[in-house]
């Protein structure tokens, strides 16, 4: 999973505007949802939960509908 995570991070980075958006992947451990990686910059806005599958959850801030769709597809590929 480590390699897949790096690939996911790199591709997510390419998709977003790093100044205006932020995306972070988290993994559930019981009730705790823990940081795996983030790309972009903190936007100080309420986070959106883009996707959840198994133990993994993807959050974003400042993302457009188009980017969100692409991120969801990327997340789907990562989870497989």
């Amino acid at each position: 999973m480590a390699n897949a995570t790096y690939i996911f991070k790199d591709k997510a980075k390419e998709l977003i505007d790093e100044e205006e958006m932020k995306v972070w992947l988290s993994k559930k451990h019981g009730r705790r949802v823990e940081y795996v990686f983030k790309v972009g910059t903190e936007q100080f806005s309420p986070p959106t939960q883009l996707a959840e599958e198994g133990d993994y959850v993807l959050f974003s801030q400042g993302t457009t509908d188009e980017v969100e769709q692409e991120l969801k597809e990327l997340f789907g590929q990562f989870i497989k």
């Binding site: 992947l25 009730r31 705790r32 823990e34 940081y35 983030k38």
Partner: peptide, 11 residues
């Protein structure tokens, strides 16, 4: 924070 992945280095 700990339910939105805002932990550790990220925090």
């Amino acid at each position: 924070c700990y339910r939105l992945g805002r932990t550790g280095e990220h925090f």
